[in-house]
Design a protein around this nucleic acid. Structure first.
Length: 392
DNA sequence: AATGCGGGGGG
DNA sequence: CCCCCAGCATT
């Protein structure tokens, strides 16, 4: 215990000694080098008044940017804001549509929580957006980083916003050896960043720290020659800046199998094809997204009976000779899972009764549903199969 | 304190 | 192929 308190006071003294240089150097660099991004307001120049950022747009961008790189977010952000230009638009939307705009971005819980946050602000706070760190922290999906980012960028509060970039930058400047996923290191960096943050331009300062981490102080091959803080960087002086702020613990990857049963019915008169789709549960991988009928099993599990899948009898009415044969297989890797997809295709002559949470959907309906990338891939295969069949 | 949650960029 | 990314909620 006493050890940490002593460490804190040492940190505080060292950080204070260079605070002015860090602040000025970083802000001057950021005003020259900042990237224009759709959610970003240009940094305030000396003598200017601060231009206001829309807190709703800042919140949307920060939610999308959690564990996701800027380049990936840009198009998603544009589409999202075009559809939901204000927090009221988002609060009024159905969850399904919010998910659809998040499709392919990953970490889908963020979409659900952002949607909830909008409903909290509009429904429980009469549209008054929380303006301080503590109140922001109470919103669903808003943790210490996001609360700090919105409070500083949208409301000019002098609070830190410590993400992975900031942890790496601070770790290198002060040569802190702990790996970046150490919670204690995060707390240390937050206290230090709180000392450094510009009281006058906290939003610009926080964005400058992250920008530096993303563009210059990168995990590998840091561009120290372009860094405005190179002279006071202890990590650089040690000769090996890339040793600091890297080396998170690797995740354990569990192999699993998703057996997918594409149950297809073709209307004889119209030729319209329909498939059974189902919605995944509220927790776990791809929660809330839609998929073709799927049975999940451990990698070493038994083959499910093909005559009866998820309570649906297929065998008696099964279609042509190829029905039930393996149509497609591929591996899909996430951080914690190696998912083997085994896709089988069944043709049925009637639209069977199917359980709750499932429905028959034609192509245009399926395209409107939010689905995971692997299931979009399966759909693409179905479409090309149909093309081949039609050409014959 | 540890774990689960996706997908893409870049060496 | 591997590491990492403008984190958060849950246990």
């Amino acid at each position: 215990m006493g050890k940490f308190r002593k460490q804190d006071s040492v940190d505080a003294a060292v950080a204070q000694a260079i605070a002015g240089k860090v602040r000025r150097g970083l802000l001057a660099w950021y005003r020259r080098e900042y990237r224009q991004l759709p959610w970003r307001v240009a940094p305030r120049r000396v003598g200017d008044r601060r231009s206001a950022a829309d807190p709703y747009r800042v919140l949307v961008s920060e939610a999308m940017l959690q564990q996701t790189q800027v380049a990936t977010v840009v198009d998603y952000y544009r589409r999202f804001i075009e559809r939901f230009p204000t927090i009221e638009h988002l609060a009024e939307a159905g969850e399904e549509e919010v998910y659809k705009l998040w499709e392919g971005l990953g970490y889908y819980r963020r979409a659900r929580l952002l949607h909830r946050a909008a409903r909290v602000v509009v429904g429980e706070r009469a549209g008054r957006f929380p303006r301080c760190f503590e109140d922001l922290l109470r919103l669903p999906g808003v943790g210490r980083y996001t609360a700090g980012a919105v409070a500083s960028i949208a409301f000019g509060r002098a609070v830190p916003a410590v993400d992975g970039n900031v942890i790496r930058v601070v770790s290198r400047i002060l040569a802190l050896p702990e790996p970046p996923d150490d919670p204690l290191l995060r707390k240390r960096c937050e206290k230090i960043a709180a000392q450094w943050v510009s009281p006058r331009d906290p939003g610009d300062f926080n964005q400058a720290m992250m920008e530096l981490g993303a563009v210059v102080c990168r995990p590998r091959n840091p561009q120290c020659g372009r860094c405005p803080l190179v002279k006071l960087c202890v990590g650089r002086q040690s000769g090996k800046p890339e040793r600091f702020g890297v080396g998170a613990k690797p995740a354990t990857v569990l192999p699993v199998v998703h057996r997918v049963f594409v149950v297809e019915h073709e209307d004889k008169r119209t030729g319209r094809r329909r498939w059974i789709v189902e919605r995944r549960g509220p927790v776990g991988l791809w929660s809330g997204l839609w998929q073709f009928l799927t049975i999940e099993a451990p990698a070493e599990g038994d083959q499910p009976q093909l005559e009866s899948i998820a309570g649906i009898r297929l065998g008696a009415r099964g279609g042509g000779k190829r029905s039930g044969s393996l149509m497609l297989h591929f591996d899909h890797r996430t951080t914690h899972r190696l998912v083997r997809f085994e896709v089988r295709w069944f043709h049925v002559k009637h639209r069977l009764n199917i359980g709750d949470g499932r429905k028959w959907a034609d192509l245009s309906a399926v395209l409107k549903l939010p689905m995971s990338n692997p299931h979009r891939r399966i759909l693409a295969a179905l479409q090309s199969q149909a093309g081949v069949a039609a050409a014959r």
